[in-house]
Simulated scan of single mutants.
Amino acid sequence: MPETPPTLDPEVLAAQARLREAGVANGDILAPDLSEARAATRRYQAFLNEGGPEVPVVEHRLDTTPALRLRLYRPPGEGPLPAYLHIHGGGFAFGELDSLDRWKREIASEAGIIVVGLEYALAPEHPYPAAIEQVMAALRWLREDAASFGVDGTRLAVGGDSAGGNLALGALLRLRDAGMPMPRLGAIIYGMLSARHQTSSHQQFGSGAFGLSTAKLERFWSHYLPDAALWQAAEAVPLHAELSGLPPLLLQAAALDPLLDDSLALDERLEQAGVPHALTVYEGMPHGFIAQTAFLSKARAARVELTAALLRALR
């Protein structure tokens, strides 16, 4: 019997209709005007961020080059509190401090921990290694200098979605190699971990029918790594790295995503390296689904899974 063609979850189709009614759509990296594509992404994210719990926030600036802005979502409660640094996606070219704002408020409220977002330098204006160096600066600040913000620098976790998953895994590898204190948990959510686009998931889902496409990913990589030799380099593409010695990792993946095989390959390599980890593949979901907690029950389930993992690791 022929296999049933993959289809989007009905909730995703309903959410897409809501987005069309609102006149918002994620920006297209293949569009000729990058600034307008980024503006479209900001409007799209602003719509997804509506609602959710209110959580006090404070912003801080680190004097990196370029300067790095951080936003700390601090729920009520006695401190110091553990902190989770989340690195947003966007192919290294899109995203800002408001990315996943509602999702971060929800996690801070549910977990009772400080959630930290950052606005790292984007490509192509700032190619590798600008973003990863800023992530390292943020982790160093949280560990050493954020006590006045109520952060317990001994109880940290780091994670990221898509390109942010690349940066989160890359930061953990850098900390390991430098012999520095490690966060207690890493979260890699449909990570953009490899520039190899001949995989089964690219062949199945890379047309763009479900949103993200192979062509878009190739453009993202060319912006972030203009030197093509880096496309296979472990320091920039962490799926090529040696993975032993990492803290426990939570992997989340979307079943209808050209990046699915990146998560599956990471799962296999972590198993070989003896790194404690768990992988959940969310069926019927496209890339980027975690941002839609207002519409998708599986986005809420993924958030609950991450929140539980954070609480186990940090408390």
Rank of each mutant, 00 (worst) to 15 (best):
E242Q: 15
S207R: 08
E235Y: 09
A278Y: 00
H277D: 04
A254N: 09
T214G: 02
T280I: 13
S263Y: 02
L270V: 02
R269Y: 02
A228R: 15
S213G: 06
L250R: 14
T214C: 05
R174Y: 11
A255E: 15
L270Q: 05
F210V: 05
L251F: 03
G191H: 04
R176L: 11
P183T: 12
D257G: 10
G274Y: 03
V281K: 01
L225S: 06
Y224Q: 14
I189T: 14
Y190K: 01
S200Y: 01
A215I: 03
A215N: 11
Y282C: 02
L266M: 10
R219A: 15
S200I: 08
A254T: 07
D261I: 07
S194H: 08
P247W: 11
E242F: 00
K216C: 10
A255Q: 14
P181C: 12
K216H: 10
T280R: 14
R184E: 13
D257K: 01
I188E: 05
R184S: 13
A234Q: 09
A187N: 03
R176I: 12
G274L: 06
G191R: 04
A233G: 02
E242L: 10
T280W: 03
P276E: 14
V237P: 00
H202L: 05
A255M: 01
A273R: 03
S213Q: 03
L193S: 10
M192R: 09
Q232I: 02
A228H: 11
L264P: 00
Q198E: 15
P238S: 13
H197G: 00
S207P: 08
S200V: 13
H202K: 05
I188N: 04
H240K: 09
A273W: 06
S213T: 06
A234D: 13
F220V: 01
Q272Y: 00
A233V: 01
I188S: 04
A215L: 13
A254R: 04
D267F: 05
A255V: 03
H197E: 07
L243S: 05
P248L: 08
R219W: 00
I189K: 01
R184F: 00
Q204I: 00
L225A: 08
D261N: 08
L260N: 06
E271N: 11
S244Q: 14
R176Q: 12
